[in-house]
Computed example of a mutant assay.
Amino acid sequence: MDFIIELGRYMADHSSELVSLTIEHILMVLYAIGLALIVGIPLGILAAKVEKLAPLILSLVNILQLIPSIAMLAILLLYFGLGTQTVVIGLFFYSLLPIVRNTYVGVKEVDESVTEAGKGIGMTPLQLLVKIQLPLSIPFLMAGLRVAAVIAVAVATIAPYIGGGGLGRQIVSGINLQNDIYLYAGAIPAAALAIIADLILGLVEKKTKKRFAN
């Protein structure tokens, strides 16, 4: 009980600093997710449209996901140096797999009869993609985005090891100083961010599923 009171007092006294670190954390995640959407959606579409490329594209993003986060950031550190930029690139790589895979699955899962109907009224392949296949794949994409966001929030906590910021600074300070108060003051907001992101994107995912089911 005393620990909780002490933790609450510390977080209240350092609220401005914690808010600043939280905003920094969110921005790193948003930049990485934005890049992953820009790159991942076209890659997912390409994999769905060109079957010969699908195994190569999916294998590459799978390999990126399998590399331990510390190892990934250490490798990127050699090429990009210390700083937030390197963290964002690492988070981008980790966010690619769920977005690419779910875009691929979403486009492939579109009912063939719907596609044939579009062809029947004279739609071009691009029109089929933009007006039918992509809209119908949005629920799958949202599911991928939800997973990517939670992963990015979690991985971003190790950013300070390569010169990045965010809530990881508070966590790393707690580890280095062996101070539970510092550690939990960073870990609790980070966990809350992951839960909030999952809940919000989960609600959006459900709404998109209902919309396209009707």
Rank of each mutant, 00 (worst) to 15 (best):
N62E: 09
L66P: 04
G34T: 11
V61H: 05
P68Q: 08
I45T: 13
G40V: 06
A36K: 03
L76Y: 03
L66W: 02
I41S: 04
V39Q: 04
V50L: 14
P68T: 08
I45F: 12
I67K: 09
V50S: 09
S69R: 10
E51T: 14
I67Q: 10
I33W: 07
A47D: 03
A74F: 08
A48T: 04
V50P: 00
A74T: 15
Q65I: 05
L58G: 07
I26G: 07
K49T: 15
L64N: 14
I45Y: 11
L58K: 13
M72N: 10
L43F: 03
S59E: 12
L64Q: 14
V29N: 00
I57R: 04
P55K: 01
A54E: 13
N62Q: 11
I38V: 13
A54W: 06
A71S: 14
A71E: 10
L77V: 05
I26T: 13
G40W: 00
L46F: 09
I70E: 02
A32K: 02
I70S: 02
L37T: 05
L37C: 12
M28E: 03
L76A: 10
I45W: 06
L73I: 11
I41H: 01
L76I: 07
L60G: 01
A71G: 14
L27Y: 00
L60Q: 04
S59P: 13
L58P: 03
S69L: 11
I70K: 05
L30N: 03
L30W: 10
E51I: 11
I67M: 11
L53T: 06
V61K: 09
L76G: 06
G34V: 10
L43A: 10
V61N: 06
L73K: 09
P42S: 04
M28V: 08
A32D: 02
I45R: 08
A47I: 07
G44N: 01
L27H: 01
E51M: 10
A74V: 15
G34F: 04
K52C: 00
A74Y: 03
L37N: 03
L66T: 15
K52T: 02
Y31M: 05
A54M: 09
Q65V: 06
V39K: 09
L37S: 06
K49N: 15
L56F: 15
A36W: 11
L58E: 05
L35H: 07
L58H: 07
S69Y: 12
K49F: 14
I33V: 14
K49A: 11
L64G: 15
M28F: 08
L37Q: 00
A32C: 08
Q65R: 09
I70H: 00
G40P: 10
I63H: 00
A54G: 03
P42L: 04
